[in-house]
């Protein structure tokens, strides 16, 4: 009878995955080994910290991250910068605050409680600066694309010359993995785009992996806590199920019928 559960689980899983797979392009996405996948998956701190660097130095000039605050950078389960580092990072940004006594807005260095500074004041401004395309907010991007992290990783590395016969408008680029293959973002990562401290070589692939890992964390900041709690919860449920199973056997043994 446990099959009931197994079958039903597999059925929904199948239904869920079929239409997800379907929604993807036929192109096979690039795969890499993500440390956060699996039952015990955790983030690679180094990768998250490097990913933050790539985000700030490359992506942040166009892409906002409006649901993140600087304090998140030092929180458990994230890049885990020290409080001092996070404070320094926050202070390196100019934040608009106010109004002050004179009713004017003013600039001040960022604090931990501030949200990430946005590159543009509003959507229209962002569109105007990017040829009409709005660079999407990156806070939950990794959950907002089917294919998730693999898709983002693939798009970052999927820039190619257009196949013969394909002509592209000005400001449009060819990307093997992007839906419709047309992307308005020029290739963001080249080998050595950023300079990593600590000896990691800043190859295209490395940066793509780091920044995608970072995006997974921004989309799912409690992923590690979730995995940890899940393991405990399921282990607990299994133990209780076993106890209840034997209790049930005992109770039903009072009458001659089988369970």
């Amino acid at each position: 009878m446990k099959n009931i559960f197994k079958i039903s689980y597999l059925t929904i899983l199948l239904l869920a995955t079929t239409h997800q797979v379907k929604a993807e392009e036929k192109v096979e996405l690039l795969k890499t080994d993500w440390s956060f996948k699996g039952l015990f998956g955790t983030f690679d701190r180094g990768s998250l910290q490097r990913g933050y660097q790539v985000y700030t130095e490359v992506c942040a000039s166009c892409h906002s991250m409006k649901y993140l605050s600087y304090r998140n950078l030092s929180e458990k389960g994230g890049p885990e910068f020290s409080i001092e580092q996070a404070k320094a990072i926050a202070a390196s940004f100019e934040v608009t605050d106010g109004p002050n006594e004179d009713g004017e807005m003013f600039q001040r260095p960022g604090k931990l409680s501030d949200k990430f500074v946005m590159p543009y004041g509003n959507v229209k401004e962002a569109q105007a600066a990017n040829g009409g395309a709005y660079p999407p907010d990156m806070s939950v991007l990794a959950k907002a694309r089917s294919g998730g992290v693999d898709y983002i990783y693939s798009v970052l590395l999927g820039y190619e010359d257009p196949p013969s016969g394909v002509t592209l408008d000005d400001g449009v680029y060819y990307n093997k993995y992007m839906y419709g293959n047309n992307i308005k973002m020029s290739q963001p990562l080249y080998d050595g785009s950023v300079e990593y401290s600590g000896g990691t070589e800043a190859t295209k692939e490395q940066m793509a992996k780091d920044v995608t890992t970072f995006l997974m964390w921004t989309a799912e900041p409690h992923l590690e806590a979730r995995h940890k709690m899940g393991f405990k919860a399921i282990l607990y449920l299994i133990i209780l199920t076993i106890l209840v199973y034997f209790s049930m056997k005992k109770i039903w043994s009072r009458i001659e019928s089988e369970v």
Binding site: F5, K143, R226, G230, A233, L237
Partner: peptide, 24 residues
């Protein structure tokens, strides 16, 4: 309890699999 194990598996290990990416 058996049902809850399946439930917990979704909640903790694939919480978004039954939803749509577009809703983010």
């Amino acid at each position: 309890l058996m049902f809850m194990i399946v439930f917990a598996f979704f909640v903790f290990y694939s919480p978004n699999i039954l939803g749509h990416a577009d809703n983010y």
